[in-house]
């Protein structure tokens, strides 16, 4: 990202339920685990279920492939690809 782009980033009003599309590869923080043991990333007030993540994935940053997304309920399903970092704390 150029210096100019850095200054322009974020000049917008962003909703609380971001949407994604099947085929997107995104980096997310794994924020919890559902009752069934599937990992979940809460992005704003949207929810992404992540399959195939390591058992200790909560509070780590991972790259996932979005498999499907429902724009009406702002929920989706993704597949774990790799871990790229952890929580700042």
């Amino acid at each position: 990202m150029s210096v100019f782009d850095k200054f322009l980033a974020g000049w917008s009003f962003r909703g609380s339920t971001p949407d994604y599309a099947a085929g997107d590869a995104i980096e997310v923080m794994v924020t919890g685990e559902s009752d069934g043991g599937v990992h979940v990333a809460r992005i704003g007030d949207s929810t992404l279920r992540i399959e195939g993540a390591p058992g200790d994935a909560v509070d780590t940053r991972v790259v996932v492939d979005v498999e499907s997304w429902d724009e009406s309920s702002h929920t989706g399903r993704a597949t774990y690809r790799k871990t790229v970092g952890g929580s700042a704390f």
Partner: peptide, 10 residues
């Protein structure tokens, strides 16, 4: 939501 960015954004 002015200026809000999520981790997947960048």
């Amino acid at each position: 939501g002015f200026g809000r960015e999520y981790i997947p954004d960048r």
